[in-house]
Amino acid sequence: MLSKVAERLYWAARYLERVENTARLVGVYDKLLFDLPRDVNISWYSLVELNSATGPFEERYQVRSEHNVVKFMLADDTNPSSMLTALSMLRENIRTSRDVLPVESWEHINELYLYAQNNIRLGINRSQRHEFLDQIVCRCQMFFGMLSGTMSHDAPWQFVKLGRDLERADMTTRILDAGAAALQQANGDSSVNLRQVVWGNVLRSASAYMSYRRSVRLSVAGPDVAWYLLQDPNFPRSVAACLTQLKISAGKLPHSKALVDEVKEIDLERYQIETDADLGRDFRSYLNDLQIQICQLSNRIAQTWFPA
């Protein structure tokens, strides 16, 4: 398989996962709007901060309002990680990899692209945002399902999986970070109820609520949610599960030892979480470290299979 094609598929999968998870990330805050008492203010701007995008945001906007943040996250072409930017990068990568993908891929991605383009106002305005985000998540999953169900599970597929799981691990840390940030901002009024609402919505945004209830068998509490999304071995969006998948996919490709060793070095138990107090600033800085380690994995992938 051509290195260049492998690289494009890897990035296509990353962008696909990024589109889906950006919708999920905005969904965390969107869901909070329904559940929080009106006097609790949540800072939408945290979404910009936890995506490390404060620079581009400040260049474009003066007011850190809900409207501006959501527009920036979903629609802005000046934001290199906005949903629509990721979607057009995804489309470009699919367009240039059509020769190794199932015939339907290109058509499918065009439908997704046209839907997002034509309905982006629904995402920016509040009234139908929930439906719009749901549609995006659903269509991304359909696309991935189509690939999974029709693509030969040979080398190209392993690169799709590498991209998906790496991006997913990264985005799961950001969804957790969104919860931690919301609580930090709402400080002073972080009653038990508020915490439950926030962590419950973090789980829902990761489509993890039901499986959390069933496998953790405790009520929703920050430390357990954090453990679940970081370390649960079975939930497919937990960081641990993503890392396991990375090792499996890499193992099916040539020259993968260095990458597998690096994945093994990531220690998810390094930061101990016992109470809600452990989910503050230190937790957020731990998540940041994880993101850096994930980024190093991506560099290793590039060095191994896509040397310039």
């Binding site: 398989m1 051509l2 094609v5 020769d99 190794v100």
Partner: peptide, 9 residues
Amino acid sequence: AQQMGVELV
């Protein structure tokens, strides 16, 4: 390339 199942380079 896609229809023939060959690499596009």
